[in-house]
């Protein structure tokens, strides 16, 4: 997994609540058996006016020019600012894969859906929870000034807008550690293989049918 230590980037504002994973990456693109290549179809139904199909040349498709990610001022954005309950819906990890593939490294919102939030950390994408008031203030700042940038300092758990006060955020210690070091979680867990085996033995005495 790619490390996340400090990131400075352009911010794109997606002013919608309850953005679901069907919108982040529509189902027809889930048929890929790879982890990459989903970026061109991120928010496909909002970015394009026609219905997308896998493997097509997106440069020839009619664009929804008004959609925020199609506005020239947000080209190259790597931080997504959005509203509450982002990522609700299915467990598809294709959602953070698509965000990452498009170039987003961090998402700022008042709240996230549980499974999506969890999936982000497995892919080097940092979801950050900020208060509704702080998110609202950032929306105004980003929309008010073209090229508005934010720096995210994971070590010190701070969101640092180019103008205004730094904002502190909370993050689970284990997740922070894995992101800072780009760790392979499976490798870490397998260090505890003996503990897992011992657990299995205890369980098998009590509930043998689970292991049959």
């Amino acid at each position: 997994m790619e490390k996340f230590v400090r990131h400075d980037g352009l911010v794109a504002p997606l002013d919608r609540a309850n953005v679901d994973t069907d919108q982040i990456i529509p189902k027809q693109f889930l048929k890929s058996i790879k982890r990459t290549g989903f970026g061109p179809n991120l928010f496909d139904e909002w970015r394009y006016l026609d219905e997308g199909v896998p493997g097509q040349d997106n440069s020839k498709r009619p664009k929804n020019e008004g959609f925020v990610l199609n506005l020239p001022r947000y080209h190259g954005a790597s931080i997504l600012l959005t509203r509450r309950n982002f990522g609700c819906g299915s467990s598809r990890e294709h959602a953070p894969w698509a965000l990452m593939d498009f170039g987003f490294r961090a998402i700022l919102a008042p709240s996230f859906a549980d499974i999506f939030y969890n999936n982000c950390f497995k892919n080097g994408v940092l979801p950050i929870v900020l208060s509704e008031d702080n998110v609202e203030a950032l929306f105004q700042a980003v929309e008010g000034k073209e090229g508005f940038r934010i720096t995210i300092d994971l070590e010190n758990q701070q969101v640092i807008p180019e103008a205004g006060e730094p904002l502190a955020f909370e993050i689970d210690e284990f997740r922070k550690h894995c992101l800072l070091n780009g760790l392979d979680e499976i490798g870490l867990t397998l260090n505890e293989a003996d503990t897992i085996r011992a657990y299995e033995q205890r369980r098998a005495e009590r509930e043998p049918w689970v292991f049959e």
Partner: peptide
């Protein structure tokens, strides 16, 4: 019983456990 992402599918296949809170 709950849903998980694909990285966790791999984690469960490899370790029979999940990192959870």
């Amino acid at each position: 019983a709950h849903g998980i992402g694909t990285s966790e599918v791999e984690h469960v296949l490899a370790t029979q456990t999940l990192v959870a809170k």
